[in-house]
């Protein structure tokens, strides 16, 4: 059971979280062509190593956040929340 560092609750067992995969960015829906949209839907970098991904603390604070995780070792760097209210944090 690896631990995921929730930026709000601290490290917790991964079973408390839902995994939402690699962070991607959504193309503007009006300008997009099918190839680009489906690239957004389906294509992943799937690296063997460090990647940035989105997790949701379903059994805890119910917040989404991003973490850097190494897919070979499962080492994790500290999490970063999305859209926090304090202006010092950057949302992504």
């Amino acid at each position: 059971m690896i631990r995921i560092p929730c930026p709000n609750c601290g490290p917790r067992n991964s079973s408390e979280f839902s995994y939402f995969g690699e962070l991607g960015s959504r193309p503007a829906p009006d300008a997009v062509d099918p190839a680009h949209w489906r690239h957004y839907l389906y294509d992943k970098k799937n690296p063997a190593g460090w990647t940035t991904e989105k997790w949701y603390h379903a059994s805890g604070c119910r917040k989404f956040f991003a973490i850097e995780r190494n897919t070979l070792t499962n080492d994790v760097k500290s999490g970063r929340p999305f859209g926090v209210e304090s202006s010092s944090e950057e949302s992504s």
């Binding site: 609750c9 408390e16 059994s59």
Partner: peptide
């Protein structure tokens, strides 16, 4: 105070 899974219930 914490919120977590207890017997698989949040």
């Amino acid at each position: 105070v914490f919120r977590s899974s207890v017997a698989r219930i949040v």
